[in-house]
């Protein structure tokens, strides 16, 4: 295998295999919390963090992750301390972040930040992504049962001793993490889609939690790899292709699943 092929195809595929299933698995909770649009909005929060990293010459990933976690904690606090619906909190905070991000991101870097550039990924980036993805999946698995219970009935979960607020905070930090590692692959504009679309597809054909989580992760990985491979052979950016692959899977799953028409 040539070095060119290794860097231009193999590393993006490996990143896709790390990010896709992780995002899909987390997304299965997001869809069920009826936070699908929230997932899209929150991805924009990464932009000012990326910009600050670029402007101050430190790793933009760290900037994006720090910004995402800070806004997630603010969202969690406002949600539990006010009567504002989470959609409103996120709608306001996150468009503000996008506006600030657009103002301060250096123009030359703006396109890469918005749409990602997986072709420039390095072996070190890939390794870091793998380690973060592994721990994200591990923690998600640990809280999945409690998250499911709190979504079914918050009161029943509390009566079982589930720490609902704490679990919600952990979940939001996990979402921030997966968004941060997904930015390189698809950019800040589309990273929400890799969280949401695979889970939406899986929901069409799942009748139990186990299959739902498995299909979400599988569809996430599948659409990421397909998108990257088509990108390599066509020269078109990977981000939009990953998302389009996911939407095609969603449409197929919709027709296979039946029973979703009114």
């Amino acid at each position: 295998m040539t070095d060119t092929l290794q860097y231009a195809l193999l590393l993006p595929i490996i990143v896709g295999i790390f990010v896709g299933p992780t995002a899909g698995y987390l997304g299965s909770i997001m869809i069920s919390k009826r936070m699908a649009l929230v997932g899209d909005a929150l991805s924009h929060v990464a932009l000012p963090g990326l910009a600050i990293g670029l402007l101050l010459n430190f790793n933009p990933f760290i900037g994006a992750f720090s910004f995402l976690v800070a806004v997630m904690i603010a969202t969690w606090y406002l949600q539990k301390s006010t009567v504002l619906p989470i959609e409103t909190i996120i709608g306001v905070l996150f468009v503000l972040a996008l506006a600030v991000g657009l103002l301060i991101t250096p123009e030359t870097e703006l396109l890469h930040a918005l749409f990602g550039d997986i072709s420039t990924i390095t072996p070190l980036d890939t390794a870091i992504t793998g380690v973060i993805a592994f721990f994200t999946v591990l923690v998600t698995r640990l809280i999945y049962r409690d998250m499911a219970m709190s979504m079914i009935s918050k009161e029943m979960a509390l009566s079982m001793g589930v720490k609902v607020e704490r679990i919600n905070l952990i979940y939001l930090i996990l979402v921030a993490t997966v968004v941060a590692i997904g930015i390189k692959e698809v950019g800040t504009i589309l990273v929400g889609a890799v969280v949401i679309v695979p889970a939406a597809a899986a929901r069409n054909i799942s009748r139990n939690l186990r299959n739902y989580a498995l299909f979400s992760a599988f569809f996430g990985g599948f659409s990421a790899v397909i998108g990257v491979v088509i990108s390599y052979f066509s020269g078109v950016p990977a981000g939009p292709l990953v998302v389009i692959s996911g939407v095609v899977v969603f449409v197929i799953a919709f027709f296979i699943g039946k029973g979703h028409w009114r």
């Binding site: 069920s32 079914i152 009935s153 929901r203 009748r207 139990n208 939690l209 299959n211």
Partner: peptide, 12 residues
């Protein structure tokens, strides 16, 4: 239930 949107079987 708050949500039966989550595909959870009775067994689960």
């Amino acid at each position: 239930l708050v949500s039966t949107d989550l595909p959870v079987s009775v067994e689960e």
